[in-house]
Computed example of a mutant assay.
Amino acid sequence: MTQKIRETDLYKPVKMFFEAQGYEVKSEIYGCDVVAIKDNNPIAIIELKTKFSLELVLQGVERLSVSGIIYLAILKEPRSGLKKRLNKIIKLCRILGFGILLVTLPKNAGGYVTQILEPLPNRPSNQKKSTRLLKEFKNRHGDPNIGGSTAAPLMTAYKQNALRIVSELKNGYKTIPELRDKTGVHNTASILQRNFYGWFSRVDRGVYELSSTGIQSSQEYASIIHDLINPYK
């Protein structure tokens, strides 16, 4: 039985396609499947789908609030009926200003991308959203997610900073200034006070330790914590 192709299967070829052009690529940032940034070029957003659909077009339209460079990446599959509709799809995307990428996934080889339409640059309609996306992109260490994921919990820059604090608390309680100095996380106080993940317990004013959940998380995310505090090892 042939294994069903998922949107996440399209991510690696798309990532490699943009990296080959000098882009830095990260996935799943504020709902965008893929975000690619290169020097002072506009942010490029790529939405992944195994089939062309109205849902994909609407996702692209929604992303115009964040970036003026939008690509729709679609699986190129012989039996999908895409070939018959391709001219109409190109016409629609040209009107909207979207680029089109076709992703081929051979059975016994790595996938590759063919660009059949260049996007037409537009001005993002919401500069605040665009700035927020760029900030998350820059603050997120590495590319810990897979583009096209839907059910899997996402690793965000906020969660990575919380894990940096977890790492410093493994050997006992510390003050907020100590944690801020050790981790370099400027918003240490708000992360501890908000305690979104339930990982921290307040010992005294300005003093925190790991909760039982935090101790468990230090083990669950051990490899991720190692990469965060030893990025080049």
Rank of each mutant, 00 (worst) to 15 (best):
R6I: 06
E7I: 09
E7S: 12
T8S: 13
D9K: 08
Y11T: 14
K12Y: 14
K15D: 08
K15P: 04
M16C: 12
G22Y: 01
E24D: 12
K26T: 06
I29D: 08
G31R: 07
C32D: 02
V34R: 00
V35Y: 07
I37D: 04
K38Y: 00
D39T: 07
N40P: 00
N41D: 14
P42F: 12
P42Q: 06
P42M: 08
I45M: 11
I46F: 08
I46C: 09
L48F: 07
K49I: 07
K51L: 03
F52Y: 15
S53A: 12
Q59F: 02
Q59V: 04
V61D: 05
E62S: 13
I69A: 08
I69R: 13
Y71A: 03
A73D: 05
A73N: 04
A73V: 05
E77M: 01
P78T: 03
P78G: 04
G81F: 00
G81A: 05
L82T: 00
L86A: 01
L86H: 03
L86K: 02
I90G: 00
I90T: 06
L92V: 11
L92C: 08
C93A: 09
R94L: 04
L96W: 03
I100M: 04
L101S: 07
L101H: 04
V103L: 04
V103P: 05
L105E: 10
P106N: 15
P106W: 15
A109K: 15
Y112D: 01
T114S: 11
E118Y: 08
E118V: 02
P119Q: 13
L120A: 14
N122A: 14
N122T: 11
R123M: 11
Q127S: 14
Q127Y: 11
S130F: 02
R132N: 12
L134N: 08
L134H: 05
L134W: 01
K135S: 14
E136W: 05
N139K: 15
P144M: 07
P144Q: 03
I146E: 14
G147F: 06
S149Q: 15
L154G: 06
M155W: 06
Y158N: 07
A162P: 01
L163G: 04
R164G: 02
I165D: 04
L169P: 06
G172A: 01
Y173N: 15
K174G: 00
K174H: 11
K174V: 00
I176Y: 09
P177K: 09
D181I: 12
K182Y: 03
K182I: 04
K182N: 13
T183G: 02
T183Q: 00
G184V: 05
V185A: 01
H186C: 02
T188H: 03
A189Y: 12
L192I: 06
R194G: 13
N195V: 09
Y197W: 15
W199V: 09
R202M: 12
D204V: 03
D204T: 08
D204W: 07
R205T: 13
G206S: 11
V207E: 11
V207G: 04
V207I: 15
Y208L: 06
E209F: 02
S211V: 01
S211C: 07
G214S: 04
G214P: 02
Q216G: 10
Q216N: 14
S217L: 03
Y221A: 08
Y221Q: 13
I224P: 02
I224L: 15
H226L: 13
H226V: 06
N230M: 10
Y232T: 14
